[in-house]
Design a protein around this nucleic acid. Structure first.
Length: 564
RNA sequence: GUGCCCAUAGCUCAGUGGACAGAGCAUUGGAUUGCGGAUCCAAGGGUCGGAGGUUCAAAUCCUCUUGGGCACGCCA
């Protein structure tokens, strides 16, 4: 628990007037204008209860306040009671608290709880475009956030490794492909074959029939089809792993759609056993209220994506006994997940409410809509390479002396790509823009990295001059670190809120605010001064900022650097 | 046609019941004989898509409406 400032303030409040403590805590807010005070209580509601005029009540309350060790003065301004608190005191309290616990195991919210996360989930044989970045980095960040809160997190990469598209790929590979090209650059090569298939099949529709036949064989475990499919899969996953490594993303399992292919019949039987299915137009469906029916089997008897997802969720519940199951999948699939969860509900499954779809907006492109089939796509690796290249160039200009430049450029470049994706609400669509992606100024990941690096350098200099820095009760804090301390104190609540809303951007925004507060402080005050006491208290504040920045960036899945 | 999502400064976005609506980018002007200028400070720029309603109080909640996006039984 952070320093409970509102609780402390409200305690004093209830000692002078008869009012519920929780009520005051819920009313306490930050004034819109910092000049009005540090905290404020709007008096409209209490005035109504007491049948008084709000401004008079505020005035009356202010007159009852006496200065004490935590509240310096209280001032009525219109219907608001503005409080000026002891900034030095609270700055010290916050620094003390952070120095003491260092954010290890802050909240035990997730203790003994398991969350299963389904994220990234690219399709084999489709290149890892920036479209896949979102699910990957949002999922990865949520995974780190929940782990931080003590949850056991199972990350599952639900690879798209099954379906009629593999019939197409096998057809194309057998017709035009060769092993050498495949091994050399598997995903791009398969992608080329995929594009070529669609080009050729427009001229010769019979190719579609050949493709269907190959997928049919694959489902029947035909040895040749299986061998080719497995080769595609293994080589592709190898490629994906390389990209994930660059992004710092890890999964507990790479169980794709094919993993569930043997469970489909029994899954359909389970759904049928709950007597909610119907046969309609030769297909097996589950009629749903207020939404289109969910289809379990096509008229030709084969199953669908939804059937596989039902199989997957039943399997995951049985295997992991999760308390929470998250699907980090784009917003176009909202209906699909509503249907999935509704089917669970109709089956009488109580834990269905533990499953959540975490939707996010799509990446759009300024000119054309990107079609995988036609071959228009921006590759994630291209984006990462450009960002890293730019970072590297700037490092050469500005910091030619630093060690391991390549590693630093990689961390800064990739980090900026990740941050760019996480800084806004997930649900918003993103229009891809090179200028924005490669911008290293302002509200960017680079800004945070730079701030962290500069703090590291500052603290290094400080320790060379004055030795290590640690908290002790004799220190007298000034007011200059107050804005920072208030933000530092919000860190834990920020993490909890981002977990509750499944929204990494809340942490991203918070870190920008914190870094900005630090940079303002840094420009206005010297840390290393002739006064030992002042230097030490300021260095402690800065040390806390460093801790929070580092922890926060790691929660977003971004590696921090000491210099850049 | 039905359902869901989005709409706030030129651009990209914060802000889910409280005081004159905030950032970044872009534009303009400033800051370094001292801790990293990838920084900081300042200026201009807004009928919060529109109309009703609820409330002491609405960008925020409700209804309607306009514009954009997505989805809608045999793809995933």
């Amino acid at each position: 628990m952070a320093v409970d400032i509102k609780g402390r303030l409200s305690e004093y409040f209830v000692s002078i007037i008869p009012v519920d403590k929780e009520k005051i805590i819920s009313l306490l807010e930050k004034p819109s204008n910092p000049g009005f005070g540090d905290y404020a209580i709007p008096c409209f509601e209490m005035a109504k209860e007491k049948k008084k005029r709000p401004d008079e009540l505020a005035k009356e309350l202010s007159s009852r306040f006496e200065g004490n060790e935590i509240i310096v003065r209280a001032e009525a301004r219109g219907a608001y009671l503005n409080l000026f608190i002891n900034r030095s005191y609270f700055t010290g309290e916050v620094v003390k608290e952070i120095s003491r616990k260092g954010f290890l195991g802050l909240s035990k919210k997730g203790k003994n709880k398991t969350v299963v996360m389904d994220y990234s989930s690219p399709n084999i044989a489709k290149p890892f475009g920036i479209g896949h970045l979102r699910s990957t980095v949002i999922g990865n960040s949520l995974k780190k956030i929940f782990s931080f809160l003590g949850y056991r997190v199972i990350g599952i990469n639900h690879i798209g490794d099954w379906g009629t598209q593999f019939g197409k790929l096998i057809t194309a590979f057998k017709k035009w492909g060769n092993d050498d090209s495949l091994k050399h650059d598997p995903i791009n090569y398969l992608y080329d074959l995929y594009v070529q298939f669609h080009r050729e099949s427009e001229k010769d529709p019979s190719l579609e029939d050949v493709a269907r036949e190959w997928f049919n064989l694959l489902e029947k475990k035909d040895s040749e089809a299986t061998l080719i499919w497995k080769k595609f899969r293994d080589l592709s996953i190898e490629e994906f792993r390389r990209i994930y490594h660059r992004l710092g993303v890890e999964f507990e399992h790479y169980t794709g759609e094919s993993f569930y292919s043997d469970m489909l019949d029994s899954t359909v039987e389970k759904v049928q056993a709950s007597k909610i299915t119907e046969v309609s137009e030769d297909a097996l469906i589950v009629p749903l209220d207020d939404m289109p029916p969910a289809m379990l089997r096509k008229k030709d008897g084969s199953t669908l994506y939804l059937t596989r997802d039902i199989a997957a969720v039943l399997y995951r519940k049985e295997r992991y006994n999760f308390d929470l199951a998250l699907y980090v999948v784009g917003s176009p699939q909202m209906l699909h997940f509503r249907q999935l969860f509704k089917v669970l509900e109709k089956m009488g499954i109580k834990w269905g409410s533990q499953c959540h779809h975490i939707p996010f907006g799509q990446i759009r492109f300024e000119d054309q809509s990107m079609s995988t089939r036609k071959g228009n796509i921006i590759f994630l690796e291209e984006v990462m390479d450009k960002a890293v290249g730019l970072a590297s160039k700037i490092i050469d200009e500005k910091s030619p002396h630093i060690d391991n430049k390549m590693d630093v450029a990689e961390a800064v470049g990739v980090g900026s790509i990740i941050f760019n994706d996480l800084r806004n609400s997930r649900i918003k669509d993103i229009t891809f823009n090179w200028n924005e992606v490669l911008n290293f100024n302002g509200e960017t990941g680079v800004y945070l990295q730079y701030t962290h690096a500069r703090i590291s350098s500052l603290l290094e200099k400080y320790s060379q001059k004055a030795g290590g820095v640690s908290y002790d009760d004799s220190l007298q804090f000034g007011e200059e670190g107050y804005d920072i301390a208030i933000l530092l104190n919000d860190f834990e609540d920020t993490i909890l809120k981002s977990a509750q809303d499944f929204e990494p951007s809340i942490i991203a925004r918070y870190l920008l605010e914190l870094a900005s507060a630090f940079n303002t402080f840094y420009n206005a005050h010297r840390v290393i001064t002739e006064d030992e006491g002042i230097s030490r208290t300021r260095a402690l504040v800065v040390l806390c900022v460093q801790k929070v920045l580092k922890t926060g960036l790691e929660l977003l899945g971004i590696k921090v650097v000491e210099e850049m």
